[in-house]
Design a protein around this nucleic acid. Structure first.
Length: 172
DNA sequence: GGAGTGATGACA
DNA sequence: GTCATCACTCCA
C-alpha cells in the first residue's frame, strides 16, 4: 500500500516514528529496482529547531520544507553527499524527516548513492511516478523495538536542540 | 584521526 | 562579488 500525502501531513515526530519499518521503494535510472525497510530516521521540526535548515527562514533551497507533507527534499551536504528527506506537516509549517538508514544500507549518504538519488528528485512528490516512494509495512513494529536518541552531527545547534531525542532507530 | 568537496547563505 | 559553514564517508 502506497503511503499517501495524508500520512505525511501529520506532526513530524509522529511521522518519523511511524516511518520505521515502512518500505522505501526506488526504480533506479540505471534499471534496477530496490525495496528496503526504513530503519533510521531523524525529525526536523519547525522554524525554532536550530538544527533544521528552516531555522534561518525560507530560502530557495529549503522552501519545499515549508510546503505540505509528502514531498522529497534532497540537498548536497559537505559537497559530497546527497541527503534524502521527506517533508511533513501542514503547508506553511517547515518540517521534514531525514532518512538515515535502511535495513540493507546504513548511512544517509550511502542510501542516496545506492539508490541513485540526487537533486533531480528534489521537490518531487513521493509516489511511483517519481520512481521513489514509500509503502506501508506488512508487519507492525512493536513499540519496544523503537529506540530514540539525540540526532547525529548537529552539535552546532546548541544543547537544547542537539540533545532532543529526535532520532528514531529500529532495532532488528 | 583527518581530508575531501561544492552548494548555500550571509555579508558587502 | 567574497567567505565561512556544513544533517558525511572514506581511508589511514
Amino acid at each position: 500500500m502506497l503511503l499517501k500525502s495524508d500520512f505525511f501531513q501529520r506532526p513530524t515526530l509522529t511521522v518519523a516514528e511511524e516511518l520505521l519499518g515502512q518500505i522505501l521503494c526506488r526504480e533506479k535510472p540505471s534499471g534496477g529496482s530496490v525495496r528496503a525497510v526504513i530503519t533510521e530516521v531523524e525529525a526536523y521540526d519547525g522554524h525554532d529547531d536550530k538544527a533544521s535548515h528552516a531555522s534561518r527562514g525560507i530560502t530557495p533551497r529549503n522552501e519545499i520544507m515549508f510546503d505540505t507533507g509528502g514531498y522529497w527534499y534532497v540537498y548536497l551536504c559537505y559537497g559530497v553527499h546527497w541527503m534524502l528527506n521527506i517533508t511533513t506537516g501542514e503547508k506553511g509549517y517547515p518540517a521534514a524527516v531525514l532518512i538515515r538508514g535502511l535495513d540493507i544500507i546504513q548511512g544517509p549518504g550511502r542510501v542516496t548513492k545506492q539508490l541513485e538519488i540526487d537533486k533531480s528528485l528534489n521537490k518531487k512528490k513521493a509516489n511511483p511516478n517519481t520512481q521513489l516512494w514509500i509503502e506501508s509495512s506488512p508487519i507492525s513494529i512493536p513499540q519496544k523495538a523503537i529506540q530514540r536518541t539525540p540526532r547525529i552531527g548537529v552539535d552546532y545547534a546548541g544543547p537544547e536542540w542537539s540533545q532532543k531525542d529526535y532520532r528514531f532507530v529500529l532495532n532488528t
